[in-house]
Design a protein around this nucleic acid. Sequence first.
DNA 1: CTAAATGCAAACGCTTTGCTCGAAT
DNA 2: ATTCGAGCAAAGCGTTTGCATTTAG
Lengths: 187, 187
Amino acid sequence: MADYGPGPRRMGRTHLPDADHVIETRTRPSLAATEAPSRIERLCIERGLKMTGQRRLIARVLSDAEDHPDVEDVYRRALALDSKVSIATVYRTVRLLEENGILEKRDFGGGRARYDLADRGHHHHLIDVDSGRVIEFADAEFDTLAKRLAARLGFDLVGQRLELFGRKPAPESSRAAPRRPPAGTDP
Amino acid sequence: MADYGPGPRRMGRTHLPDADHVIETRTRPSLAATEAPSRIERLCIERGLKMTGQRRLIARVLSDAEDHPDVEDVYRRALALDSKVSIATVYRTVRLLEENGILEKRDFGGGRARYDLADRGHHHHLIDVDSGRVIEFADAEFDTLAKRLAARLGFDLVGQRLELFGRKPAPESSRAAPRRPPAGTDP
DNA sequence: CTAAATGCAAACGCTTTGCTCGAAT
DNA sequence: ATTCGAGCAAAGCGTTTGCATTTAG
């Protein structure tokens, strides 16, 4: 990922499995399609969803992902495992999983939605503006504060979004083109 | 605004100045084009930007806006004042203003960017999920906490995004189709 | 056997852009 | 007089969808 936040959209992407912009893949060495059902596959079965080959494949990719892949990422990784999926199916499956509470859609800006396993528990994100890496964290103090802030304004809190944009305090080495944080995120 | 958060996009919008989906306009009764320069116009001149008629017009609309209009809103309001602008110009102007630090781009989900005067100071947003209204607030305690959270993870905080999604505690009246908060915003 | 999932390509909404004409400095 | 903005239409991107075909249960 090269830019985030509500900034100018990147151009020049296609649906083809190119490898540009990928910071890290971070997918555990995956098992073949004949192996034991993935975590998400089990959840699908639990919910009585029809399990097709491509659904199983996408379920595995998502179960193995330790990052926050966008649809393109999922598509590319799925093709790498067993190349017979269309991107439309990835979109449809990811939406299905979201509707069934298995995935959560995230918006870190940049125009592409990214996905997160729902059962990883409540957490927030810190985005390293230099590398694009996303770090998850949770904080009870913040959760309390959020509830209190909403209450102060006369609302019940029904959802929240907290994203921090940070930079590793550089020792002195020159860094390749340090990016500006996204608009609307003043410190 | 009818839906927010990284959810399914609304369909059926055009560039035409229709009035659907507008919750409130909240624009102070505007002065004619011959009146004193708007706040933003002054900032533009300060920065040596060429002031055309449509730029002056858009500057006024934005200066007078007390909400967080999207490009369509700005376009519609500009047309209402003095009907000779194209939406392309609104996009270009709004981007120019953002690049010059006069506006801030916000992303409340729903696929449309919304704009905020940069000099309104550091603040966050609470979105009423029933009405779509956006309420601004600031909180020093949160700012401190954010800095501390980043530090704990080994980062300097360079930006942040905090959005709360709330609902007015209903007395007992039935409410028209209460919406779910956007995905990825669990309480 | 039937309801539902897939693939493909076209459509859609928001945003950007190429190009020509017109306006600001 | 030159540089830069405006307008229009077309393209671009991420995402959704209509329809014919395949597949799971």
